[in-house]
């Protein structure tokens, strides 16, 4: 059933693809974390724009990531923006998770007591300085674990990039499968990789959480 020789043969190939998966995760999350913060800050600074952001977030969260990947990959070229598969895919993942992250930041902002804003006004701080020096440093640390959980969720969705033929883990495993007619080893190895990575990172998030609580 399980062929160890074959397993060791494909391991280096899969390892290279795993690096691609991790790169996609890192870049995608960088976009998600930054754009999410921007969206949440817009909501905070311009309540009038809040409705637009709310609707946008709801839109992004209500439709499949796979369709969003296709959309960026196939529709943007029509507007003259040609992205390679990796860039388009990572951008779509980043935007999708930015919607989730913006909700996390919003909760963080809401948890900062009103008195902090009022005290800053009393000290005659500018709104920008209040935001940057007073509010952000208090709002961010408590939400780091929640962001960590979305990082893990994002990581687990990178196999979707295989749909536009990005050579990440899943695509590589499928290619190996179609060439050798053996799917058991490559697909199972991919599963094991994701399982181990998720369990380890979930453990790290929990440690971070308890450290933040003790702090």
């Amino acid at each position: 059933m399980w062929d160890w020789t074959f397993t060791f043969e494909i391991l280096p190939v899969l390892a290279r693809a795993a690096i691609m998966t991790i790169e996609a995760t890192a870049l995608g999350f960088a976009i998600a974390a930054t754009l999410g913060l921007v969206l949440a800050s817009i909501r905070l600074a311009f309540p009038a724009a809040g409705v637009v952001v709310t609707v946008l977030v709801e839109l992004i969260r209500s439709t499949p990531l796979l369709i969003q990947i296709f959309f960026l990959y196939f529709v943007l070229p029509k507007a003259g923006i040609v992205l390679d598969a990796f860039t388009a895919g990572v951008a779509a993942i980043g935007v999708h998770y930015a919607a989730y992250c913006s909700e996390v930041y919003r909760a963080g902002f809401e948890n900062v007591p009103r008195g902090q804003w009022e005290a800053s006004i009393a000290l005659n701080l500018s709104p920008w300085n209040t935001f940057k020096d007073i509010i952000l440093p208090q709002a961010l640390p408590p939400v780091v674990p929640a962001l960590g959980n979305y990082l893990i969720a994002l990581f687990k969705e990178t196999p979707l990039l295989s749909a536009i033929a990005v050579l990440e883990l899943m695509q590589t495993a499928k290619n190996i499968g179609s060439e050798t007619f053996r799917y058991t080893e490559p697909v199972t190895l991919v599963g094991v990789f994701f399982l181990v990575m998720s369990l380890v990172s979930a453990g790290m998030v929990r440690m971070l959480e308890s450290w933040l609580q003790r702090r």
Partner: peptide, 14 residues
Amino acid sequence: GTSALVQLFWLYFV
């Protein structure tokens, strides 16, 4: 701990 797509492919291919 593993993604939905991996599970789908596993059931489908393996």
